[in-house]
Design a protein around this nucleic acid. Structure first.
Length: 664
DNA sequence: GCTATCTCAACTAC
DNA sequence: CGTAGTTGAGATAG
């Protein structure tokens, strides 16, 4: 289980949040136990109010994307496409001799390529207005085999955004489902206790474990996928793409197998070989498109660039034991035919990795395309015959994601032996060392600043709000507690400490609360937990990356500086001290403050700018109650693989809420 | 079209 | 902490 950021779409965030979230204006709510809902959450085809809530969340993400990624070329998840047109056809049927009739229509190349990525509902194709709330029928995979080539940079960027958005929606729905399930299970359990004497039977309407009688939670990964499938939000459904999937980069990281299906990287939910079945192929032969290498077969060999992949079949049900000979059929035959026609396959590696969200501890990494160079029948360790395929990685691709993951793991382990203070920018002030890494030149600049762990506010900030308010919880905070109410009746974080969705302002528990430090409503205040590294990058001078895998929704660090009042900031700006102005991050009205990072700073100000950032700015209060002076907390917008550069979009932050911008 | 079968998931309980 | 059992959903095949 874990989470994602569903940023709020309110443009005047602080102002709009004030009436409902300020402690003093909060209507008094009964502090009694929540009344459990009698109706099941997901077990009906009729949309319950909970489901509707979920859909509105989902809509909210869409709006965010319209907002954040430019209004012009955004596709509405409900089907209202408005897409860019590439100049030339990037779609080529493959292999030519297999399907020569499938030449793309030269008159509509753009629709063709984009429809391969973004499903277009039939009603829209007819020119009718798409009905936003009616789920479409599930769309099956199609048979046309294509390769996407020569995308213009503009299309590539657009399709990358489509993938990013799809993944954000997936992760959001996944987390919302698990949060809802968590609540439902808790409330039903409470109801069961309350109704123990009354012997109210709940059988038949709730998933209950047959053997133990305990409540089962629905799986968020599956639920998110099926919600999206019902609405035609899976990508690459109406073309079988051979080779790279547009918008997916080598090294992209997935935390659930189901997510691979949603983006179209691999269409099989469990099977390792994905292929166009013989019955759908123009030549009557199956063609493989992707494989997952998870080490599930005892005869696999994996050296990274070269893989010996075992075909499927012959295993005992629900076990990995070979109990019979494999046959050259379905996926096995597809790999053999792909070799024959020289069709490359995508390779996704599944590996156990620290920081995985799944109970299995696995992550999935896209490692690029491979060519099948050999195929033979062999006797495996079990004594039964297996098919083996030798795969070579095609040259000229970005470094393998799985290799980067392993390297990062090695660096982390070797770090333990090193003196942690040697190049710790933070001078042991953070929970973990912040490394400085520069193999480009001798610049050690970041070491020259005084390290500021958290933002310094003027003293009056702590006094102005008058009587401090907090919760009275003796143990961890629970539903309905005062601090939950301040956050609109729910906690902003999951039990695992991930942001559920972006909000205008988050109220964490603070010194005026009686709850203990392990309370679920204390996350960002606990500071850094990932091993960040400030490194020299040729393109952007300095950058920040992490040695650890960062899950979407995780807190990364504060954007720390010294807060100046508007008067102070203006004074400094008017005096025009060279170099100073560029290092002031101003938070304009309604916040009306500026952050000075010219003399004291933390790791955050080395993050580079991107219009497609992977880090999100979230306002958080924890050590005082002054709404005008929130902490700027940075959370991961997506799953960030180790060693990938972190980036922020200061411009978007400026638009969506706090008017965060750099003056220069 | 329907159903049965297959599957390098994911979770929970032991 | 491993593993065995359970549930699960999509695609394929008949």
């Amino acid at each position: 289980m874990m989470d994602s950021v569903l940023p709020d779409t309110s443009t005047n965030a602080i102002a709009s949040s004030t009436p409902t979230s300020h402690p003093h204006s909060q209507p008094s709510l009964p502090q009694t136990l929540l009344v459990p809902k009698p109706e099941p959450f997901w077990d009906t085809h009729i949309e319950t109010s909970d489901e509707l809530d979920l859909y509105s969340e989902f809509n909210r993400v869409t709006e965010l994307f319209h907002f954040a990624f430019g209004a012009t070329n955004v596709v509405d998840p409900f089907g209202a496409t408005n897409v860019a047109c590439p100049e030339q056809t990037p779609l080529v049927p493959v292999p030519q001799e297999l399907d020569s009739a499938a030449q793309p229509d030269p008159n509509s190349p753009s629709e063709d390529v984009l429809r391969a990525i973004v499903p277009v509902p039939p009603e829209q194709q007819d020119g009718a207005v798409a009905t936003a709330t009616v789920p479409r029928r599930k769309q099956s995979r199609q048979k046309e085999l294509v390769r996407v080539m020569d995308l213009s940079p503009r299309d590539e960027a657009h399709l990358r955004e489509t993938v990013r958005r799809t993944r954000l929606i997936y992760d959001s729905l996944r987390v919302l489902t698990s949060v809802e399930e968590e609540k439902r299970v808790a409330s039903v359990a409470a109801a069961a206790v309350a109704a123990a004497a009354a012997v109210t039977t709940l059988e038949g309407c709730l998933p209950v474990d047959g053997s133990t009688g305990k409540l089962r939670r629905l799986r968020g990964d599956l639920r998110a996928a099926s919600l999206m499938r019902e609405r035609g939000l899976w990508l690459n459904r109406d073309k079988r793409i051979v080779g790279a999937i547009p918008g997916i980069m080598v090294g992209d990281l997935f935390l659930f197998r189901m997510e691979l299906c949603v983006v179209g990287l691999h269409g099989q939910i469990q099977a390792g070989i994905d292929f166009l079945p013989a019955s759908m192929s123009s030549t009557g032969e199956p063609i493989a498109t992707s494989v997952i290498v998870s080490g599930g077969y005892e005869d696999d060999m994996d050296d990274g660039e070269v893989i010996v992949y075992t075909g499927h079949g012959g295993q005992e049900k629900n076990s990995s034991r070979q109990i019979s000979h494999q046959k050259l059929e379905s996926g096995n035959l597809a790999l053999e035919r792909s070799m024959h026609y020289g069709v490359e396959v995508r390779v996704i590696r599944g590996m156990k990795y620290e920081g995985s969200a799944a109970g299995s501890g696995k992550v999935y990494v896209y490692d690029g395309v491979y060519r099948i160079v050999d195929c033979w029948f062999d006797v495996g360790r079990s004594g039964f015959g297996v098919y083996k395929f030798k795969l070579w990685r095609i040259e000229g691709q970005a470094k393998m994601g799985s290799a980067i993951l392993k390297e990062a793991r090695n660096v982390r382990r070797s770090e333990l032996d090193l003196n942690p203070t040697s190049a710790d920018m933070a001078n042991r002030k953070e929970n973990v060392a912040v490394r400085l890494f520069n193999d480009f030149d001798d610049d050690r600049g970041p070491l020259c600043y005084e390290y500021l762990v958290r933002t310094c506010f003027p003293k009056f900030v702590f006094h102005q709000s008058g009587k401090a308010t907090g919760c009275d919880c003796v143990d961890g905070c629970g539903d309905g507690c005062f601090c939950a109410m301040k956050n609109g009746g729910e906690f902003p974080y999951t039990l695992q400490g991930h942001l559920v969705r972006g909000k205008p302002l988050i109220f964490e528990c603070g010194p005026f609360c009686s709850c203990p430090p392990h309370c679920r409503n204390r996350v960002a205040q606990k500071g850094l937990k990932y091993r960040l590294e400030v490194f020299r990058s040729k393109q952007t001078s300095w950058g920040v990356r992490s040695l650890d895998l960062i899950q979407a929704g995780s807190f990364i660090c504060e954007f720390a500086g010294v807060v100046l009042t508007r008067e102070q900031a203006q004074l400094l700006t008017m005096n025009d001290i060279p170099g100073l102005c560029a290092s002031i991050v101003s938070v304009n009205p309604p916040l009306d403050i500026s952050l000075d990072v010219s003399t004291m700073r933390n790791v955050a100000c080395y993050m580079s700018h991107s219009s497609t950032p992977n880090v999100w700015v979230q306002f958080v209060l924890h050590d005082h109650n002054n709404l005008m002076f929130p902490h700027l907390m940075l959370f991961a917008m997506e799953n960030i693989p180790p060693m990938r550069e972190l980036s922020l979009d200061y411009g978007v932050a400026d638009e969506w809420t706090g008017k965060l911008s750099i003056c220069n």
